[in-house]
């Protein structure tokens, strides 16, 4: 179900990412102040924006889960947070490398975006432990959704507050990220944003496909081997996806025969 059109999506992502890299390194001019080092910008900033959007999406999916009680929404929220955590580590690493290159330090507390990003990551790092610590799958899903909503709201608010805390110490242009960038920079930046978003969506669908396949497999196993044959489900942080036992299971049996 999630695997549908995954291949064209993956190919588009690949093409967009390749184009971004080619344009970033061979077409966009070197920055007047940062020189070649500014190329990290095309990686770091779009990645950060996509990561945060992923967290906010997870919050929205969690709202949908609490409203509909559909475990698929819980799975969407879970996979989104999982993926954004992976992207977030890349943001922190690339940001840290950039800070070292341009300011000579690995970490700069006066940089509000970096600090608030760390806070967001620290908060989301507790998502998996929280899930794992609740045994009952239904309650686990519910509590995880409550967490995802709260944390999703925390993301934008936290950015505003941490920015306020340093803005008056370090006066700077607070406007749009790309407002003061020349044309070619802007083109590459937006292209990079699109390809990072595509990469996120591709990987998200990839993982959703995998999770959905395992859930179907489990349903099929129950159908074939009977309930008593199945060992007690392992305690896990992964949402239990309730696949329609009739629909998905029976079609699977039909295919097996």
């Amino acid at each position: 179900m999630y695997g549908k059109r995954l291949r064209p999506l993956a190919l588009t992502t690949f093409a967009a990412l390749t184009l971004t890299l080619v344009l970033a390194f061979f077409w966009a001019p070197n920055d007047a102040n940062q020189g070649f080092l500014q190329k990290i910008f095309y990686l770091h900033v779009p990645l950060a924006i996509v990561t945060l959007c992923g967290f906010v999406y997870a919050g929205l999916a969690a709202i949908a889960h609490l409203r509909t009680r559909d475990s698929r929404w819980d799975m969407r929220s879970y996979v989104a947070i999982h993926l954004s955590l992976v992207f977030g580590v890349a943001v922190l690493v690339s940001g840290s490398i950039w800070a070292k290159g341009s300011w000579g330090v690995w970490w700069d507390w006066s940089e509000p975006t970096l600090v608030s990003f760390l806070l967001v990551m620290l908060l989301y790092a507790t998502y998996q432990p929280l899930r794992f610590a609740i045994e009952d799958p239904e309650r686990q899903a519910r509590y995880a959704s409550v967490f995802a909503i709260t944390a999703g709201a925390f993301v934008p608010i936290n950015f505003v507050i941490v920015r306020l805390s340093t803005a008056y110490l370090h006066p700077r242009v607070l406007g749009d990220i790309s407002a003061n960038l020349p044309g070619r920079f802007q083109v590459v930046f937006y292209l990079s944003l699109v390809s990072m978003a595509l990469l996120w969506i591709t990987l998200w669908r990839y993982e959703m496909t995998s999770k959905h396949a395992s859930a179907q497999l489990r349903a099929l196993k129950r159908l074939l081997a009977g309930d008593e044959d199945e060992a007690l489900p392992r305690r896990s942080a992964v949402p239990t996806l309730s696949v329609g036992a009739g629909g998905a299971g029976s079609s699977g049996v039909g295919a097996a025969r």
């Binding site: 102040n33 020189g35 900033v45």
Partner: peptide, 20 residues
């Protein structure tokens, strides 16, 4: 990270490559 520090002089290429 977003704001480019204007006070900085241009960083030479050979120095920037490892970081990028």
């Amino acid at each position: 990270m977003i704001a480019l520090h204007l006070a900085l002089l241009e960083i030479p290429l050979h120095q920037a490559v490892p970081y990028v």
